[in-house]
């Protein structure tokens, strides 16, 4: 039973991180119908920024409790800036171009960002300091769940609730939904579509950054390549839930995280990544609209 619970909470943690990244994919896809390949890299940059800021703060002798908060804030600021810049350089000039063009541009961005971080920092794994506090009340349960897992799950739930409220009730959130449904119409009724798209990238990138810092602190090491696999898996989660749908991305991430945790726990850990890829291929073939998505009728 303990093993089951351990796997369950492990899966919940994974799922939370996937959710934080998947939201960015799904929001961007919802608005401009682009698979933002560089999104995984934004997550990776968030983790690196967190590591660097934490390193500087530690060297300067900041108290431990404040380090996590400052590192998170900095990671969010810089990831959001990267997301904003990537959109301005790589995707904005391509609006209205052939469908393949922005996708290839996104792949180029992804390759560029990975190599940029590799060259500027290091090609090797870097140890990431454990930033999350260890709660005493979690001690009795340490066999099944530790403090950092709790922090991740709670933070993700908070972020998801916040995002849902934001999309539902704020003016910008409404503008986003309008743009997602019909960009031209939104423009005609006075929505600043360029601003909405930028905001989508900024919000998506911020969420990825939160995920990046939290998971890096949980796992304890990062390198320039972590965004690639995490990106694909989060994308799988987004598709699983129905791309374009925000609750779908959360649900899909949860399902994927749990599936992976149990599959590696009970079947084989060698094929950890294969499970996710197989799941991705199967969903796309059999239910491309995902769990929450609606099948779209093509207009002729």
């Amino acid at each position: 039973m303990d093993y089951f619970l351990e796997l369950f909470f492990g899966g919940l943690t994974r799922g939370s991180i996937y959710a934080l990244i998947a939201l960015g994919y799904t929001m961007v896809y919802g608005i401009i119908e682009l698979i933002n390949f560089a999104h995984g890299e934004i997550y990776m940059i968030g983790a690196f920024t967190g590591l660097i800021v934490a390193g500087v703060l530690t060297a300067l002798g900041f108290p431990e409790a404040s380090i996590l908060v400052i590192a998170l804030i900095c990671a969010v600021i810089w990831s959001a800036s990267y997301g904003y810049t990537v959109e301005k350089i790589g995707y904005k000039p391509l609006r209205g171009a052939q469908r393949l063009s922005p996708l290839i541009s996104a792949i180029g961005m992804s390759i560029f960002l990975q190599n940029y971080v590799m060259l500027a920092q290091t090609p090797d794994f870097l140890p990431f300091p454990a930033l999350t506090p260890q709660f005493d009340f979690m001690k009795p349960y340490s066999a099944v769940m530790n403090s950092s897992e709790l922090v991740i799950v709670v933070a993700t739930i908070a972020v998801c609730v916040g995002l849902t409220l934001f999309i539902k009730y704020t003016k910008l959130g409404k503008a986003m939904r309008a743009t997602a449904q019909n960009r031209k119409m939104a423009m005609l009724v006075g929505v600043n579509v360029d601003m909405v798209i930028s905001a989508t990238f900024v919000i998506g990138s911020s969420l990825a950054a939160v995920g990046g810092v939290l998971i890096a602190s949980h796992i304890g090491q990062i390198n320039y390549f972590i965004g690639f696999i995490a990106g694909i898996k989060a994308f799988t989660a987004a598709v699983l839930g129905g791309i374009g749908s925000i609750p779908g991305a959360m649900l899909g991430a949860l399902v994927l995280g749990l599936t992976e945790a149990f599959a590696t726990g009970y079947v084989s850990s060698d094929y950890e990544d294969v499970f996710a890829f197989c799941l991705l291929v199967l969903i796309l073939i059999f239910r491309p609209a995902g769990i929450m998505g609606k099948e779209k009728t093509q207009k002729v």
Binding site: R99, L103, D273, V281, P288
Partner: peptide, 24 residues
């Protein structure tokens, strides 16, 4: 199985296949 998919989904599925083969 994958060619019925829309363009961008195809990209990601082929990427998945490539990785599956390498992992195997």
């Amino acid at each position: 199985p994958v060619l019925r998919l829309r363009g961008d989904y195809l990209a990601i599925v082929t990427l998945g296949f490539g990785e599956i083969i390498r992992l195997v």
